[in-house]
Design a binder for these strands. Structure first.
Lengths: 155, 155
DNA sequence: GGCAAGTCCGACCGCATTGGTAGGCTTTAG
DNA sequence: CTAAAGCCTACCAATGCGGTCGGACTTGCC
C-alpha cells in the first residue's frame, strides 16, 4: 500500500512553488534541480497539477508555474487526487464523482463485499488526513524542520 | 494508492473462518470455492496469516484452518500488516519494528523530507482506521449487510 | 527576425511487482 | 494405504511505474 512517486514529486513541486511565493513564475528546471528530480518526469507531473487547476503556467521565455490559489486554500486531498488519479484503498473501488469512490462489485443481493466496510473506513481515514493538511502547513514545516517534535526520529 | 488483492483475499479468508466459528478446522478448498478464489493463491495467503499467528492450521485429512484468537481480538491492522508486509504510504518509508515505519531519506541536516509530515499523518490515519476495525465486526457486517447505513450506496 | 528559454505532448522502454499456475512433497484420518 | 489436506518452491504473463527522448509550440529579448 503505497502512493507512487507522482504524489511525492508533485507535493514537493507544490512546496517549492509555495516557497517562491512571489508573483512571477518559477521554471520547472529550477525546481527539478533544487529537488534533484528528472526534469522530463516533472513536466508530466506538472501537467496533472495544471489540469486540476492547482497551478497556472505561463509559456515562453521566463515562463514557469505559479500556484493558482493561495497555499492556505490548497489541501492535500486535492493535490493527491490530481496526482494519483483516485484515492481508493482497493482497485475494486471505482471513481464516482471525484475523490469519493465506491466499491463496484456486483451488488447482487446476498454477500456483496463484506470487506467494503473496512476499505471504506480506511479510505475515509486517508482522505481526512489529507484534507486536514494544507500546502501552507507543509511549506512552513519545510522552512523550520527542527521545531516540530513529530516523534519520527531520523536515525 | 491501493492495497493489493492479498489484503482483500486475506481479509475475506479471515471472515470466512470467523463465520464457521466452530472448533474444527475449515479447509482452504471450501473457502476458496465459497469466495470463488484460486485455491493455490489462497494457500500462499494463508501462509502469511499463519506466520503472523492469526490463524492456526492442522494438517492431514480433515485438516484446515482456525482462527488462532477470538475474532474480537483480531484487529485489521494486524491482518493487513501480515498480508501486505508493511503499512506505509510511501516507499521511502522503511519498516522499523513492525507497523510503525519511518522515512528513510538522507537525514543530512537541511531539507530532509518536507513531505514527511504529510505521509506520517496519512499513515497514522490508515493505521488508526485499521485498528478500530475488528474481525468480529466484519463477520457481523457480513451476516446482515442491509442493517448498517454506511452512506455507500450500491447504484 | 532570430534565438534561447520555457511549456507542452506523444511515443517509447526497462524493470519490478502482482496475480496466478504447476508440481511435488509431507502429514494424517479412516 | 489412500485420499484429503497443508506446505513449499519454482515458474510465468501481464501490468504499471519510473524514466527518457524527441519534437512541437510560445514568448521575452537582443
Amino acid at each position: 500500500m503505497i502512493f507512487t512517486t507522482k504524489a511525492e514529486y508533485g507535493v514537493r513541486l507544490l512546496i517549492q512553488l509555495g516557497r517562491h511565493g512571489n508573483g512571477h513564475p518559477v521554471s520547472l528546471k529550477a525546481i527539478a534541480e533544487a529537488e534533484s528530480l528528472p526534469l522530463a518526469y516533472c513536466e508530466r507531473i506538472a501537467a496533472l497539477l495544471k489540469k486540476a487547476g492547482l497551478v497556472a503556467s505561463t509559456r515562453g521565455a521566463h515562463g514557469g508555474y505559479v500556484l493558482a490559489r493561495p497555499a492556505e486554500e490548497i489541501t492535500m486531498d486535492q493535490a493527491v487526487l490530481a496526482l494519483e488519479g483516485a484515492i481508493a484503498p482497493m482497485d475494486c473501488f471505482v471513481d464516482d464523482s471525484d475523490g469519493r469512490v465506491q466499491c463496484s462489485h456486483l451488488g447482487d443481493s446476498a454477500g456483496a463485499c463484506s470487506t467494503k466496510l473496512l476499505w471504506t473506513r480506511v479510505q475515509m481515514g486517508v482522505i481526512r488526513s489529507l484534507q486536514r493538511t494544507t500546502l501552507a502547513e507543509l511549506v512552513e514545516f519545510d522552512a523550520k524542520p527542527a521545531a516540530i517534535p513529530t516523534s519520527v526520529s531520523t536515525s
